[in-house]
Design a protein around this nucleic acid. Structure first.
Length: 486
RNA sequence: GCCGCUAUCGUCUAGGGGUCAGGACACGUGGUUCUCAGCCACGGGACCGGGGUUCGAAUCCCCGUAGCGGUACCA
């Protein structure tokens, strides 16, 4: 089995594409197959080296290593379409010689006019075939005049083209709705449908797993396979990933690229796991299912992955579920790893100046206070900011704290706390006794008791009690109580 | 417009002619003397609509409807 992920380097790796890459990877790894990375950079206008580099980086970050690709080579290279131009030219000539393709000199303006006319008349807009049967000497005439032709594929008329889709079953299109499409652009670069076929055939790709947006391209590609005498691969089209409003996931919905998620402090295993679950379900035994069945490392997913269990309908990306998974994986990760990952965020906050063993060691020691109560690594410094400075006014200004302090009885608790706490520095046990004294005095318990206590602190952790001086605490709590009185 | 794909809780989904339609996230309630988180328990919550086939349809078929995709010298 040979599968490939073929991004075009025109921007950052989108999570939807990352999911496509993931499914390809899972299938290859689960079947002892080969995962190929191919760069589709035939759109010279939009392709950039920077995009290519960032896509490779993001794939590696996700743990989706490839066996053949532009940076590591392989037996079927080169792996950038821009380096395979001679191949497309050669096969285009073969197609022309075989009567499957022809030169077209129609101007973009003429084509656009035809399109509009078709639409206005309620016909499917398609190429009218003006140059389809141009005599050789006419072609030569245009060429001599310096015109740059495109090469079009001669689509057989009135036939059904059926291909098997491993996710959806047989899909049929009639060629009546397919006009003679462009194989090679006037600048000599191959168009997508042509390049994929040549590459997939030459790279001996056995399973083409890609987004559903390619489903209607597939009959064109099948036609090219046939004309070239190649056996088409198996196809599998994945339903797209949408935003909460059921429109394609885009910037409007927040983060959409893998690098954005990385920058925001998500762990790769969380993103990968979450993406895999959109459209794929590892479970088969519903009765014994539980959360643990969804929390799977890449290897385990690969072992269980199967296209038969891939859904047919579009899925909505759920940030809440990602957050849940990220919390899970942050807790599962070693504190040294989280320390290393969080360092840059502490640096951004100005809490840590440079990366030293001592700094890392310190972070590691304080991390447990935050991990488990934040969704993302990026939020950790915020959570631990009190270690660098404590300001009662700031604490009181927090919306969540203000809310807590308006709960019934909160004021009494704070007032009691302000007096009860004015003792020596608290340790865990001392804090406990203070808490129970306040409890007795106010008659509050549970949330009603601890919410205000925690609210008065910033951030919510007992460690504050050890770090703040008694004077600071008394002042802070008195300030809180005073606020309540006003 | 035309062609194609799709349709189970708010979301991701399991299932698939006879089930109490299962799970996860989120949500609600209670428990947990350090809130939040976590953990535990409990709870509310779904088969797009209409026909047909059948003893029986959420499941099969058809038609609608809706969403998405395509209809490029973008991929």
């Amino acid at each position: 089995m040979r599968v490939r992920f073929a991004p075009s380097p025109t921007g950052q790796l989108h999570v939807g594409n990352a999911r496509t890459a993931l499914f390809n990877w899972l299938l290859a790894r689960g079947h002892d197959g080969t995962f190929i990375l191919r760069i589709e950079d035939t759109d010279v206008e939009r392709s950039t080296k920077e995009s290519e580099a960032s896509i490779l980086e993001d794939l590696r970050w996700l743990g989706l290593e490839w066996d053949e690709g532009p940076d590591i080579g392989g037996g079927h290279g080169p792996y950038r379409q821009s380096e395979r131009l001679h191949l497309y030219t050669s096969y285009a000539n073969e197609l022309k010689a075989g009567g499957h393709a022809y030169c077209c000199f129609c101007s973009p303006q003429k084509l656009e006019a035809e399109r509009k006319a078709d639409l206005a008349a309620g016909r499917p807009p398609r190429y009218h075939g003006t140059c389809r049967s141009l005599a050789p000497h006419d072609v030569q005439h245009h060429l001599d005049a310096g015109e740059k032709p495109v090469i079009r594929f001669k689509v057989p008329e009135h036939i059904d083209v059926t291909f098997r889709d491993l996710v959806r079953g047989d899909v049929t299109f009639n060629t009546d709705v397919i006009g003679d499409f462009v194989l090679v652009r006037s600048d000599g670069h191959p168009a997508y449908n042509f390049a994929v076929v040549v590459d997939d055939a030459l790279m001996e790709v056995t399973h083409v797993i890609r987004g559903e947006d390619h489903i209607s391209n597939t009959p064109r590609q099948v036609l090219i396979y046939r004309a070239l005498g190649f056996a088409p691969p198996e196809f599998a089209h994945l339903a797209l990933v949408m935003g909460p409003d059921h429109t394609p996931l885009s910037k409007r919905h927040g983060a959409t690229s893998v690098s954005e998620f990385r920058e925001r402090g998500y762990l790769p295993e969380a993103l990968g796991n979450c993406l895999a679950l959109i459209g794929w379900s590892p479970r088969s035994d519903a009765a014994s299912a539980g959360a643990a069945d969804e929390l799977l490392p890449l290897g385990e997913m690969a072992r269980r992955f199967s296209l038969e269990h891939v859904g047919h309908s579009a899925g909505i990306f759920d940030p809440e579920k990602l957050a849940w998974m990220n919390r899970h994986y942050m807790k599962a990760a070693s504190s040294s790893r989280i320390a290393a990952e969080s360092l840059r965020f502490f640096q951004a906050r100005g809490f840590v100046r440079r990366r030293t063993d001592a700094a890392l060691g310190y972070l590691e020691s304080i991390l447990p206070m935050a991990v488990g109560s934040v969704d993302r690594i990026e939020e950790i410094p915020e959570r631990l900011a009190f270690l660098w400075s404590y300001d009662a006014a700031v604490a009181l200004a927090r919306p969540d704290v203000a809310h807590v302090l308006h709960e019934p009885g909160a004021r009494d608790v704070i007032a009691a706390l302000a007096t009860a706490i004015a003792g020596p520095l608290l340790d865990r046990d001392a804090f406990r006794s203070v808490a129970s004294r306040v409890k007795e005095q106010t008659g509050q318990k549970g949330k009603a008791l601890f919410h205000p206590i925690r609210g008065a602190h910033l951030p919510p952790d007992t460690t504050v009690a050890r770090i703040m001086s008694a004077a600071e605490r008394a002042r802070a709590f008195a300030a809180v109580a005073g606020t309540q009185g006003s």
